[in-house]
Design a protein around this nucleic acid. Structure first.
Lengths: 248, 248
DNA sequence: CCAAAAGTGTTGAAGTTACACCCATGC
DNA sequence: GCATGGGTGTAACTTCAACACTTTTGG
C-alpha cells in the first residue's frame, strides 16, 4: 500500500503561475526577480513556479507555490496546459540558477501552467523563498523571461482572449465600485484592440451583470462617471454557462 | 554538458491520446484493450498512452506512443491539458497492470493528453506492444475506461465542441468526397444536439469552404446527394484565423 | 407506387456596425 | 471659459431561428 517518496518533491514536474492584475489603465503580470548578481532583466525575471510534491495534485501545487513565492493565496486558478521541450532550459543563466536551488538541476522538467485574474490592490505581493522580489509589471513591457516563461505568458494571454469572449471578466480585476470606462479599458487591454464606446456600453448593459449604484465619482476634473458593481448572481450564472451565442 | 538519462523513460510523465474518427454515422474513439484475463471492459479498455522519454518533447512522445500502440502515424495532435491527481491510479486492476509493465509502477505520474481527428478508413489500427487489441468504439458507448481516461475523454469532447465553434472541422474526418448530410451528421455528433437542416446548409455554404463536385451519389435508394469536397485554401485560412464572429 | 433522404425560401426578430454631439466637472 | 472624459440614439445592414413541401432514386 505504501508508495515511495510520497511527500517528496518530484524532480520532473513543476507548475508555473501567470497572475494578471489590472491597475485601471493596463494589464499587469506578477513576476518574481531571482536577483542573481547583475544579469539582464530578461533572465532575472520569471513567473512564480516550482516543482510539485508527489502527494499534492497539480492545482494544489500551483496554489502552494504561488503563496510560497509571493504570499498571494486563495486565488482561483485555471489550467493553461503543459509545456516542456527538452531544451527549455537552454539559457546558461537558467542552468546556473537551477544548480543553486535544485537537488537535480539537470533533470528533465515539464511544467504545467496556470493563470488567474486578481485585483492588484488586494494582492500586494511579498517575495519569499528563492524570490528576491515579486512585483507587478505591465504585460506589454515584458519582452522576455526566464526559461520558456515568455511563451507561457503569451499562451496565457491568448487563453484570456478566448475566455473573455465566452464569459464575463472583471469581477476579479476591478475594485468593488467601478465605472463603465474602466471596464471598457479592461476589455481593450485584454483584447488588445479598440472597442466602440457606445456599442460596448450597450452590450455589457444588455448582459444584465451590472448594478448602477447611483453614485458618482468625486474629484475628477471632468464630468463624474456613474459607479457600478457586478450583479453577482447573474455574473456567476454567465461564468458557468457562457454566453453561448456563437458558432453553431 | 551531459545530462543524465537523456534517453531514458521518465517515470513521472506520460502522454495519452484521444483519437476521434467518424464513420459517417457517429463519432468513434480509438481505444486499446489491455486484455488481462477476464476483467470487465471498463478496466480492460484504455486510451493509447505511455511514459515519455527524457529527450523527446511532449508532442513527439504522443506521436511515438500512438504509433507504437496502434500503428497510426502522421497525425496532427492538439494538446488538451495535463491530468494527474495523486489518486488517479486508484483502481486495483490498474495498479496490478502497471506492475506488469513499468519499472516504477508506484511512481507519481502526471499525464499530458492530446487529441486528434482522423478518417477512420485511413487508419485501421493494429495493436502492438502492451496493447492486445486496438479498435474504434462509438464515443457514446464508452461508459468508463482505465485510470482517469474517462475524464480525459470527456475533456477531449468538450475541447472539440469548443473548437468546432471557432474553426471548420471535417477535413480530417470525412472522405475526400462527401455529402452535406454527412457533414451535417458530423456536426450533430460533435455538438451532441440537432441542427436545423436548412440553416446548417446555408451556414456552411456561406463559409465558402465547400466545392461542389457536380457528381452525385450512386446506388442509394433515394434521391442521390450532390458530392462536395473541401476548398483547401479557404479551409486552411479559417483554421488559422477562426471565424472570429463571436463575443466582443 | 412507396419509402427514404435530398433539396429548397421566406419571414420576423435580434443583433451588429458606424458614427457625432452635448454634458458636468475642476481648474 | 476651456480641457477632459462621460454619456447618449439612430439607421442600414446582417444574422438567426423557425418552419413544410417537392424531388429523385431503388426496390
Amino acid at each position: 500500500m505504501q508508495k515511495k517518496n510520497v511527500s517528496e518533491l518530484n524532480p520532473n514536474v513543476s507548475v508555473d503561475c501567470v497572475i494578471f492584475g489590472f491597475d485601471l489603465e493596463k494589464l499587469n503580470v506578477l513576476v518574481i526577480d531571482r536577483g542573481e548578481n547583475e544579469l539582464a532583466e530578461n533572465v532575472r525575471l520569471a513567473l512564480p513556479g516550482n516543482l510539485i510534491y508527489n502527494n499534492e495534485n497539480l492545482e494544489q501545487a500551483a496554489y502552494r507555490v504561488l503563496e510560497e513565492l509571493t504570499s498571494l493565496k486563495d486565488i482561483y486558478l485555471e489550467q493553461i496546459g503543459a509545456f516542456g521541450d527538452p531544451n527549455r532550459i537552454c539559457k546558461e543563466a537558467d542552468r546556473a540558477w537551477l544548480k543553486s536551488i535544485r537537488a537535480e538541476p539537470e533533470a528533465r522538467v515539464i511544467t504545467v501552467a496556470y493563470f488567474s485574474l486578481v485585483k492588484m490592490e488586494d494582492y500586494m505581493p511579498h517575495a519569499a523563498s528563492f524570490a528576491k522580489n515579486a512585483a507587478w509589471i505591465p504585460a506589454d513591457e515584458i519582452k522576455d523571461l526566464a526559461f520558456d516563461h515568455y511563451d507561457i505568458l503569451q499562451a496565457a494571454r491568448n487563453k484570456l482572449k478566448e475566455k473573455i469572449k465566452i464569459q464575463p471578466i472583471g469581477f476579479n480585476l476591478l475594485p468593488e465600485k467601478f465605472t463603465l470606462s474602466q471596464l471598457h479599458k479592461l476589455y481593450e487591454s485584454i483584447l488588445d484592440k479598440e472597442l466602440d464606446k457606445r456599442n460596448f456600453r450597450r452590450k455589457v448593459q444588455k448582459l444584465d451583470i451590472l448594478t448602477n449604484l447611483n453614485e458618482k465619482q468625486e474629484g475628477v476634473p471632468h464630468k463624474p462617471s456613474e459607479l457600478y458593481k457586478f450583479n453577482e448572481e447573474k455574473y456567476q450564472e454567465l461564468t458557468q454557462n457562457g454566453y453561448d451565442n456563437f458558432g453553431f
